[in-house]
Amino acid sequence: MKVLELDERHHVIRVVPECSEDLFFLTLLIEPGDVVYSWTYRMLKREGVTGTERGERVKVYMGLRVLSLDFQRFTNRLRIHGVVIEVPDWLPAKGRHHTIAVEPGVEVKIVKEHFNTSLIRGILEQCIQSRAKVLVISIDLRSVCLAEVTAIGSRILYSSSLSLSGKLSHRASLLNELEATLRKLLTRLTLHLREYSAVAIAVPSVLKSMVLEALRKVMDLSSINFTIFNVGEGGESGVYELLRRDDFCDYLKKVNVHFYSSYVEKLFRYLATDEAQVAIGIEEVKEAVEYHAVDTLIMTSNFLTNSYRSEDTRTVLERLGAQHIKVIVIPSEEECGQKLDSLGGIAAFLRFKIRT
């Protein structure tokens, strides 16, 4: 996300999203009641020479009072629904409903109704960290899967069953089949490996050496930051196993992918061993904020978008901003986000215990 302007005094944010991940973070910056300005298309009806009306789509810069947002993760479009409050005089659209479709590369100006400096800066910082991504190649004799992991979540790029006939005792035959399978797969997908910070290879230990040898024949591994992980199964099962493992979360941090499931896993560990180290739900978090005991706050995107306008939530976020507390927003669509939503959508790690 390219930040062009951040004016705390006038509550103005001006940005240019550069990828689909940026659009997700843009949904966290915009809330109902804000005013959004951007270029868009609007149907302009003109009267023809025969007296009939004809429509013409015209490009226009307008401002909307936001009513709602519509965004599907890993897509390249954010739809902002609202009421037109500012538009050129030649276009009769003021007061009417309109939808601005924001794509990467389109400048957006946001005039916030409520400006929480700490939260906004935290979201922009998360956005910068989310640019790194990892490619996961998970394979065994029965299935292969390619997945992409970023800070805002993971997605399956390709998944297929395999029927490699070679037995482990026939190494040469099996190696040839693995090489042919991987070459065909990577050629078909035409992956741009330079887009990825690293490549994680998930494979059962018994196939580790053969898969690595086959990959070296179809990819230039010398120029790639890759790591091999032993998994019980390949394919999608191997990907999901990795996403739940602490060593993989540690690996993601090393390659600068701040995978936020680690915060939720840490939260549940505290709940099982020493729950006084955390505050769960808005009431406990509010109490911890009053004691200046919060070290890091985590909340889900659903909690932020659905509860931000409540008085308790706004009070908590404003006080956290004054205390310069780190705030992490976790996508509710991810498994870790769903776990946090089940606890109320908000929690905090504490500097010190406020109860025993």
Score class of each variant (00 low, 15 high):
119 L>S: 07
135 L>A: 08
258 H>C: 15
261 S>P: 05
191 L>Y: 05
306 N>T: 06
16 V>E: 09
119 L>H: 04
292 H>R: 07
289 V>F: 05
235 G>W: 01
25 F>V: 04
319 R>I: 01
67 L>C: 08
214 A>L: 02
235 G>C: 09
190 T>K: 05
217 K>G: 00
102 V>S: 01
153 G>Y: 14
33 G>D: 09
253 K>T: 11
327 V>E: 14
111 V>I: 09
234 G>C: 07
318 E>R: 06
246 D>A: 08
166 G>C: 14
145 C>Q: 01
327 V>S: 07
93 A>L: 04
314 R>Q: 10
1 M>C: 05
233 E>I: 11
33 G>M: 12
103 E>L: 09
73 R>H: 06
270 Y>Q: 03
300 T>F: 05
213 E>V: 07
299 M>N: 03
79 R>F: 03
245 R>T: 07
41 Y>N: 11
142 R>Y: 14
253 K>P: 05
141 L>P: 00
187 T>C: 07
202 A>F: 14
171 R>H: 09
198 A>N: 02
162 L>V: 06
225 N>P: 06
328 I>F: 07
347 A>Q: 05
100 I>A: 00
238 G>L: 15
4 L>N: 07
256 N>S: 12
1 M>D: 00
36 V>K: 02
263 Y>L: 10
186 L>N: 04
241 E>T: 11
280 I>N: 02
29 L>M: 10
96 R>I: 00
87 V>M: 08
270 Y>L: 13
339 K>Y: 08
356 T>N: 15
302 N>R: 15
344 G>K: 02
202 A>G: 15
70 D>F: 08
242 L>V: 07
315 T>P: 00
188 R>A: 12
150 T>V: 11
30 I>T: 00
94 K>R: 15
166 G>D: 12
206 V>N: 13
342 S>F: 06
23 L>Q: 02
77 R>F: 10
217 K>N: 14
348 A>H: 02
239 V>D: 01
74 F>W: 05
263 Y>P: 05
336 C>A: 04
59 K>P: 09
210 M>E: 06
59 K>L: 11
47 E>Y: 10
57 R>F: 13
274 D>W: 06
48 G>F: 11
112 K>S: 09
199 V>G: 02
306 N>Y: 13
268 F>Y: 04
101 A>H: 13
142 R>V: 10
43 M>A: 11
229 F>Q: 02
182 L>P: 00
345 G>H: 07
213 E>Y: 09
69 L>P: 04
45 K>E: 05
10 H>A: 01
323 Q>T: 06
60 V>I: 14
342 S>M: 10
271 L>T: 02
6 L>W: 12
126 Q>D: 08
11 H>Y: 09
29 L>K: 02
154 S>L: 03
236 E>R: 08
202 A>I: 14
159 S>Y: 09
40 T>K: 03
122 G>R: 10
97 H>Y: 15
321 G>Y: 11
297 L>V: 14
143 S>V: 06
141 L>M: 04
90 W>R: 07
163 S>C: 12
330 I>T: 00
16 V>M: 08
57 R>A: 15
259 F>W: 13
28 L>P: 04
328 I>W: 12
68 S>Y: 08
109 K>L: 07
269 R>D: 15
190 T>L: 12
182 L>D: 01
313 T>P: 01
25 F>D: 03
106 V>D: 04
188 R>V: 03
355 R>S: 15
233 E>F: 13
325 I>C: 13
17 P>T: 02
